[in-house]
């Protein structure tokens, strides 16, 4: 399982993070992270809340100074003017001026990024179109819906047309419809060849949007590869059986433990090499006096990988 790219790409890499460590008091938020981005790829940082994803993003964008290690953007150090110009940051918070309209917010952040005149007007028009906010451009930001604010938040980070975009959980707190709209916006960026880092604790988002996924836990990258490769490396050709039973909890727990499964409420989870093992499991359950309520067979996913690697759920 490769945790970093080879040295050949480092000279031209849009982003290189090298052995970055950041501590806050006794807590090590980022613990020796090394990664390198390829041009035009979308890299997902997948991990539970508090894993260190946001601190890593803020380090890349120059808002957090690492205790050790380096970050370079197209060869320039983080927080240097060249790095700032190349990077676009979409923070997790709605970092907007609530009393300004959508257009005024974009204009303000465009000017802060050094744009003016026709290029600024063009960039604002592009952002409003991209975020599907053209008809709401004159609305005060505080009056926009949650999903619209999220889209404007993203647009404000892209007003200067950065080559590398860092998105920190851009779908937090939005409804499924708005989430799909955000996915469409990201697909547009991908189709234009923008390099993206996308942090999330939703494995569906990482699987759908990202070329590669880095699984982050306790400030460390514990796995980095494509989704398929991560699953394959963790589970090989094995599948997962999810079975829900009715029966005395104590007996159910003992039976699941005997078959090396994992029990959550009354749902048991087993990893099997061949589908024929299902029949064996069901016979054993019946013999133990457990009544089967529901049964499904599925391919392991990133959540399974995280569980397999850390022993914890992604949303713990």
């Amino acid at each position: 399982m490769p945790l970093q790219d080879g040295p050949a790409s480092s000279m031209t890499s849009p982003l290189d993070v090298n052995s970055v460590v950041k501590r806050f008091g006794n807590i090590t938020a980022v613990n020796g992270v090394t990664l390198s981005l390829r041009t035009g790829e979308c890299l997902g940082l997948l991990g539970p809340n508090g894993a260190g994803k946001s601190t890593l993003i803020r380090t890349i964008v120059g808002r957090v100074t690492p205790d050790s290690g380096q970050v370079t953007v197209f060869g320039s150090p983080a927080a240097s003017p060249a790095a700032r110009a190349a990077l676009g940051w979409v923070p997790q918070e709605l970092a907007l001026y609530p009393r300004l309209t959508a257009k005024e917010n974009l204009r303000a952040f465009g000017r802060y990024s050094g744009l003016s005149g026709a290029p600024l007007a063009k960039a604002i028009a592009w952002c409003l179109h991209w975020a599907a906010l053209e008809d709401r451009s004159g609305e005060l930001t505080r009056n926009l819906s949650g999903g619209m604010k999220r889209r404007l938040n993203m647009a404000a980070g892209l007003i200067h047309k950065p080559r590398v975009v860092l998105m920190d959980e851009p779908t937090v707190g939005v409804d499924p419809q708005s989430r799909n709209r955000i996915f469409e916006m990201i697909e547009v960026l991908r189709s234009e060849g923008t390099t993206i880092i996308y942090t999330t604790h939703y494995m569906e988002e990482a699987e759908r949007l990202c070329d590669r996924v880095a699984i982050v836990d306790h400030g460390r990258i514990i796995a980095l590869d494509t989704s398929e490769a991560l699953v394959r490396n963790s589970f090989g050709s094995r599948n997962q059986v999810i079975a829900r039973f009715d029966g005395p909890p104590a007996e159910l727990a003992a039976w699941v433990a005997r078959h090396a499964g994992r029990l959550t409420d009354s749902t048991a989870e087993f990893t099997i090499e061949h589908p024929t093992q299902i029949a064996v499991l069901l016979e054993s359950a019946s013999a133990a006096g457990l009544e089967l309520v529901d049964l499904s067979l599925r391919r392991p996913n990133l959540e399974s990988v995280f569980l397999n690697l850390t022993g914890r759920e992604l949303r713990d």
């Binding site: 964008v61 940051w89 918070e93 970092a95 952040f109």
Partner: peptide, 16 residues
């Protein structure tokens, strides 16, 4: 207010 909303962080990540 800007520090609390994160706008200050965003502004300081630009050329400002």
């Amino acid at each position: 207010d800007e520090a609390e909303s994160g706008a200050l962080d965003r502004v300081l990540s630009t050329r400002v």
